[in-house]
Design a binder for these strands. Structure first.
Lengths: 122, 122
DNA sequence: CGCCTAGGTTGACAGATTTCGAAACAGCGG
DNA sequence: CCGCTGTTTCGAAATCTGTCAACCTAGGCG
């Protein structure tokens, strides 16, 4: 793990842009961000994400028992979250630990911000 | 349109809950929210959503030309956004107008909030 | 009213993608 | 070596994407 050879998702490209309630997204940005939302678009992955996000880090051995799914399936879903750039994993001895990537998580939230005057100023 | 006979997505069930960085999501909540993220998990729908969200309302006739896709395809994507509870549509005369559902949009953003101390207090 | 045209939606379909588990594999520790 | 943890490979079933054809609604016109 931690073989983040190529980050798959270019976080730089996301940092630049305003909440979607302020300015329409261009094609390139949508192509970068959509996979992140897609990764959260499955109930299992959403729960995995929330379990990972609500603690500093968590072991796969604590994630798997929370679902009625096989180990490989959980591993698949974790890979989707990793490829989307939302989480990072690291092997320490016998176990593999997952934690959120705060930049990605925060930027996704920023995209959904409501600047409280966006509708009025349109 | 505006045949919101059954809202498809129960927004009440979403309102109750803390950011996922604070508390893990339970099964039921994930089942409600995941379709929303899933709806945003396609580049076309994400751009549609951002176009709708950045103005008070917008006509389908202004959305369709922005893509290299057929009318029916855009209509299908809009239906996904509608079924997810993210947008609402209304026919006025010849044209159909779309606007965001602020509650859903805001709650999705709230879910991704980072309470700035969540990681430290773990 | 009927007929025509334009804007959108719906239904059916092919092709691509996703989801999941069984089996095989890789890394670590005893 | 063995057992344990987690990942990858492979294949089958289910779902998604995009298109064409058909349909519905609204408006203009005779």
């Amino acid at each position: 793990m931690s073989k983040q050879a190529l980050p798959v998702v270019d976080l730089e490209a996301v940092a630049c842009c305003a909440p979607i309630a302020v300015r329409p997204m261009d094609d390139d940005q949508a192509a970068v961000v959509a996979p992140m939302f897609k990764a959260l678009g499955d109930p299992v992955r959403l729960r995995l994400m929330s379990m990972i996000a609500s603690v500093p880090e968590i072991c796969v051995c604590d994630l798997t028992p929370a679902f009625d799914l096989s180990g490989p399936t959980i591993s698949h879903h974790l890979k989707v979250l990793r490829d989307a750039g939302l989480v990072d994993s690291e092997r320490r001895g016998t176990w593999v630990w997952y934690r959120v990537r705060p930049e990605a998580f925060r930027q996704l939230g920023a995209l959904l911000d409501v600047p409280s005057a966006a509708q009025a100023t349109g």
